[in-house]
Amino acid sequence: MPTVFTHAVVPLALAVAVGRTRVSPRLAIVGAVLAVLPDADVAGFRFGIEYAHEWGHRGATHSIVFAAICAAVLSAIWKDARSLVAFAFLTLSMASHGLLDTLTNGGLGAALLWPFDNTRIFAPETPILVSPIGRNFVSERGLDTLVSELWWIWLPCAVIALVGWGVRRAARSWN
């Protein structure tokens, strides 16, 4: 899995790309929280839930359907999330977690298609180093993971944010 802060980068970059008139700063922060939330499934280890179980790590909570359900619940109870754009943004924010996990070189893959299929999926290419957990993070491997994430996630997200910002700025100057 990528590091917790890297998961949050994707929705923040998307929010910058589309602008605060479509995705408010509050919505962007909630999107960043949702992007991190799927890894709460590691709590299942303490309750005897095996990694490979559908509710184990990288299981159901990493799926696109689970992301859409969470976004729908938020849209139902939070006024700021009651638009198609907000729903789509929140769904994409949370779904980005599982999608990023499929790009890592470790673990079992992510159950992106749950509840229709519990198969753990990896992307055809897995360029992102899987993050070491706990005390092992502060190590040479942890540093290598951060460099991998900077190259494969942070840099593309920065480009997406800057291009979106630039397009919006250019469109304003043409009007």
Rank of each mutant, 00 (worst) to 15 (best):
W78F: 10
L92S: 14
S96C: 07
L34I: 00
N136C: 00
S75T: 07
T61Q: 05
I128H: 09
P38R: 15
A88L: 12
T91P: 03
L103T: 11
D80A: 08
H57N: 10
I121H: 07
A32K: 03
A60T: 01
A76L: 14
V42A: 09
L27A: 12
H57T: 01
L92R: 01
Y51N: 13
A111L: 10
D41H: 15
V36Q: 11
G98V: 09
P25T: 05
D80R: 15
T126M: 08
A111R: 03
A72G: 14
H57A: 13
A88H: 01
D101C: 07
W55N: 03
I49Q: 03
A81F: 11
H97Q: 05
G98H: 10
A60D: 01
G134I: 08
T119I: 09
V33W: 13
I133Y: 12
G98S: 13
I64L: 12
V130S: 12
S63R: 02
D80S: 12
V30M: 14
I128P: 11
V30Q: 05
A40C: 10
R120I: 07
A81N: 03
P115E: 13
R46N: 02
W114M: 10
H97G: 09
V42P: 00
A43F: 09
E50V: 11
T104E: 09
F87G: 02
F47I: 02
I121V: 14
A81C: 15
S83C: 08
A81G: 04
L129R: 08
A43Y: 13
A67H: 02
A111E: 08
R46Q: 07
A123N: 04
S83H: 10
W78I: 04
A32F: 06
A35W: 12
A68N: 06
L74K: 10
S131V: 07
A35P: 04
L112G: 04
G106N: 13
S131G: 07
S63M: 06
V36E: 12
F66R: 08
A95L: 07
L92V: 15
H53T: 00
P132F: 15
T119S: 15
A68W: 07
V130I: 07
H57R: 09
H97W: 06
L74V: 08
I49C: 04
G106C: 12
T104V: 14
R120V: 02
A67V: 05
G56K: 10
D101P: 06
A32R: 05
P25E: 09
W78E: 05
D117W: 06
G98Y: 13
A81V: 10
H97R: 05
P25M: 08
T126A: 11
A67P: 01
H57F: 13
